[in-house]
Nucleic acid binder design. Sequence first.
DNA 1: ACTACAGTTGAGTATCTATTCAACTGTTAT
DNA 2: ATAACAGTTGAATAGATACTCAACTGTAGT
Lengths: 119, 119
Amino acid sequence: MSNDEFTCDCDVIHADVVDLVKKHMPDDDEFVDLSAFFKILGDYTRTKILWALDKNEMCVCDLATLLNMTKSAVSHQLRLLRIANLVKSRREGKVIFYSLADDHIKAIFETGHEHIREK
Amino acid sequence: MSNDEFTCDCDVIHADVVDLVKKHMPDDDEFVDLSAFFKILGDYTRTKILWALDKNEMCVCDLATLLNMTKSAVSHQLRLLRIANLVKSRREGKVIFYSLADDHIKAIFETGHEHIREK
DNA sequence: ACTACAGTTGAGTATCTATTCAACTGTTAT
DNA sequence: ATAACAGTTGAATAGATACTCAACTGTAGT
């Protein structure tokens, strides 16, 4: 079990610990998905967009005005948020309203806030 | 209140909503800190490191072996995690053990997982 | 049909960032 | 003293990414 080929540049110091942790390690896919999810939250503009949409559904122009950005820049970010299933949209004539698609965002923001406050 | 100078490339559509949201908007600093925090979580390598340290305290070589990376690459990432107050370290001879510095990480991972599962 | 405007999209650019590489520090053992 | 090794660090590089710009789509009104 600890006879794997190692391409790292050091000896194994605590083989027992490494083996134990490796045994319970989830698939790579899970880490890919999880880090991708947090990567989406880890941007100043997207954080503000998500916070705003938690307060009210808003259209692209509203968000562009609020954040003092171009429609294009906002739209590009909304596209990423859409792909990540974090926002949903509904059309009403020419206007497209965006809102949060996920209940967890508020909870995640709260926990993040707690961390920041405690540091 | 809605007479601000707008540098965005569109008219305000729902001025009432924009004003309301803007009124409750936290300081920019909060968004900077919050997005910086999630940015740290939003990396494949760091996610795995945090997950591993949640299972056991580990030294750099253990992590390098587990993740099949060089000590240098792991150390660089641990540095970022240290700065963000997400991990702490203790020295024991030549070996430096890293462990989680924050109780919230597990909870945040859980919530992130829920989002991924529900999509 | 034409105009106006909300929104999207693709290419280009400037910036950021994760890893590599090589040189370094700190501690232990001989 | 010096060899060995855990760990750090700075510079360099390769890849990712946020915004700009210009062209485009979709819908409403005239």
